[in-house]
Computed example of a mutant assay.
Amino acid sequence: MEAQHLRGQAEGQWSTGFCDCFSDCKNCCITCWCPCITFGQVAEIVDQGTTTCGTAGALYALISAVTACGCIYSCFYRGKMRAQYNLEGSDCGDCLKHFFCELCALTQQYRELKYRGYDMTLGWAANVQKQQNQGVAMGAPVYQGGMSR
């Protein structure tokens, strides 16, 4: 029997198809006009807050402006995300998807994180706070540092 994950989805499968860009019209439009925003939001969640949305988005925009290949940077985040959530794919496939259809790749990653319970507009810290307030596990374990009595 195949292990099931999230709402009946088979382990390893993406929650939406690669070309389902228009299933979230708002994100599709934002990504079309300013992919650095979507990339920044994805990177912040995938990096669990160690990289901010603004930093990742600005670096993506700079790489895109200088080399016209922001996809080189973003394809590595697809690989990180696949590893975190045990999603199907390969490093070569990640690069090809981002090189030939960057917008579809970014919107699929955005939808996947949204499907997994993240509010992409909040960023990592606010999602962790929301998770703690609701008592819901959202994927990565929450670290509560410091000493307590």
Rank of each mutant, 00 (worst) to 15 (best):
S23P: 05
A58P: 00
F39I: 01
G49E: 09
I37S: 01
S23T: 14
G57A: 02
C21E: 15
F39Y: 03
F39T: 01
C29I: 14
D20N: 15
Y60C: 09
L62D: 06
L62Y: 14
T31P: 00
I45T: 09
I63W: 12
C32W: 10
Y60V: 10
A58M: 02
T55P: 06
A56F: 01
T55C: 08
T50D: 03
G54P: 00
A56S: 02
W33A: 07
P35K: 06
C32I: 04
T55G: 08
I63S: 12
G40T: 05
A56R: 00
C36F: 05
C28V: 12
G49V: 03
D47C: 11
G40N: 05
C28Y: 15
C28P: 11
T31I: 01
T38I: 00
T52L: 01
W33R: 11
V66N: 13
C53F: 01
L59E: 08
L62H: 10
L59C: 08
C21P: 11
A61H: 10
T51M: 02
T52S: 05
E44W: 12
Q48G: 02
L62P: 07
C21M: 14
L62M: 11
S64T: 09
Q48I: 01
T38V: 03
I63A: 08
T52M: 00
A43L: 14
A58G: 02
V46L: 09
S23M: 06
C29M: 07
I37R: 00
C25D: 11
I37E: 00
C53D: 01
I45F: 01
C29D: 03
D47L: 07
V42M: 07
N27D: 09
A61N: 12
D20G: 15
F39V: 05
A65G: 09
A61E: 10
N27Y: 04
C29N: 07
C29K: 10
A43G: 11
Q41W: 12
K26A: 12
F22R: 15
S64V: 05
C34W: 15
S23D: 14
I45Q: 06
F22D: 15
D24V: 04
I63C: 13
P35L: 08
L62C: 14
G40F: 04
D20L: 15
C32G: 06
C25L: 13
Y60A: 03
A58N: 00
F39H: 02
Y60G: 07
Q48R: 07
G57Y: 01
V42Q: 10
A65P: 07
